[in-house]
């Protein structure tokens, strides 16, 4: 369904970010944790924690916490601190726009009747 004229790039909706208090508290805590763990990892690496078995696992765990925490910070930022924007974009043609007819949107049956289905399932080269 195409619309006349060029409307690409039109902004359809622009809602400011919510920035709820809970999200603000959460992102502050996550940021503090992130900073602490980043420095902890560096300190641990420099002072050779990784040379022992347990210390190595510990450093790995700290690095994992850093990345997971960063993921949550980004998710929170995207969801609560960025505006809700809808922009008109060009819809690219899909395969089904070109090769599927309107009356065949739900697919084409490959056999008619239950028995025919059985026959075709058993022998795929059964007459077309």
């Amino acid at each position: 369904m195409s619309s006349s004229g060029s409307t690409y790039g039109d902004i359809h909706r622009y809602e400011p970010a919510r920035e709820s208090t809970a999200a603000a508290i959460a992102i502050v805590l996550l940021t503090i944790i992130e900073v602490i763990f980043v420095f902890l990892f560096t300190y641990g690496l420099l002072s050779g924690w990784g040379l022992t078995d347990t210390g190595n696992m510990y450093l790995g765990a700290v690095l994992a916490v850093i990345f997971i925490d960063l993921a949550f910070i980004l998710a929170m930022y995207r969801k609560e601190f960025l505006p809700d924007v809808v922009i008109v974009k060009k819809r690219r043609r899909k395969w089904e726009d070109l090769y599927v007819r309107e009356e065949e949107v739900d697919g084409v049956p490959f056999a008619d009747g239950a028995w025919d289905h059985v026959k075709r399932a058993v022998y795929p080269y059964y007459k077309r």
Binding site: Y14, E15, P16, A17, E19, A24, I27, V28, T31, E34, V35, L70, I73, Y77, E80, F81, L82, P83, D84, V85
Partner: peptide, 14 residues
């Protein structure tokens, strides 16, 4: 403007 500076600040700290 939709995005407040608070979220940006947090991200900048990180």
């Amino acid at each position: 403007e939709g995005s407040g500076e608070f979220g940006n600040l947090m991200l900048q700290i990180v």
